[in-house]
Design a protein around this nucleic acid. Sequence first.
DNA 1: AAAAATAATGAAATGATATAACATAACTAC
DNA 2: GTAGTTATGTTATATCATTTCATTATTTTT
Lengths: 163, 163
Amino acid sequence: MTGVPAQAFSKHDHGACCRSVMNTARRLCVARGVRLTPVREKVLELLLESHVALGAYTILARLADAGFRSQPPVAYRALDFLVAHGLVHRVEKLNAYVACNQPQAGHSPAFMICSHCHQVAETVGKTRSGVLGKTAQAIGFDIQHTVIEAEGVCATCQKRAVS
Amino acid sequence: MTGVPAQAFSKHDHGACCRSVMNTARRLCVARGVRLTPVREKVLELLLESHVALGAYTILARLADAGFRSQPPVAYRALDFLVAHGLVHRVEKLNAYVACNQPQAGHSPAFMICSHCHQVAETVGKTRSGVLGKTAQAIGFDIQHTVIEAEGVCATCQKRAVS
DNA sequence: AAAAATAATGAAATGATATAACATAACTAC
DNA sequence: GTAGTTATGTTATATCATTTCATTATTTTT
């Protein structure tokens, strides 16, 4: 996170934000010698435009609208690629996907999911040094991947609920 | 946790362990005025016997073997009840369920999932005081539930892999 | 530049997970 | 014992994800 925790819940120039991530993604793929093909790029774009997590079939429908094929594998393949390259994260609690907003960092993300507006904010997880990391170390468990998600109500929705 | 972190990965008298949790569960239900009906009890028992997380349909099959009906809702209803009362946890990463080993504590659990032997160990999450809790507080996000899961390789499987 | 190897996509089918909806039965409280 | 509530029976369907094999596009090797 570039100094901005939970970007989704803060005001920012979203258009610029998307373009910037898109460019980083493109550079990253070139650097790694992998191809950000049209479907993959479109899926990333769809996810970037949305601060709510999108399910594979929602993405699939939007792909179809954009002229791509509409069989499940087209969405899943693109998502698998994007997830593998850290450009997109899967939100386990929602069986859905969000674009990563700092794709360069090899990070373990954490999410805050607003159960009211369904926006998902990404923040950084402190895997090794946290309780989980400590316990893991104590029992010799070698952590390869972490899922850290919090469900709750964002500040905006709390205010709305009161009024 | 009764002083034992990640019980599943440690040696212990599993039979006694199950019976003890079963008794706690029964007492808990009486105390709360809810019914631990035969299906519910059987599902809890199945999960307690297993240190690997069981999917709903696996449970369903075992229920059928034990003479219960075999439609999905019978498993899901029992699981919903057990989860609601903190006797069972859902492991999001696996779309599967594990029995809780300290049902009395109103806790937010964390899991360590061995991707080799598929055992799942439960440990306690330190939700409020961790990074996630701090970030949440900073942006006014009200956490209602957390999902904290680590995938990796347990100590036993690491040793086996070497030999 | 042609052939071979690799990576990506097309397409059909199926598998796995989960819920909706409505009817019936079993307990609980009065 | 009737009313209210909770739990179960049953059918159908929704939702999420993968397998498989054929075809096309791109890259590498020669």
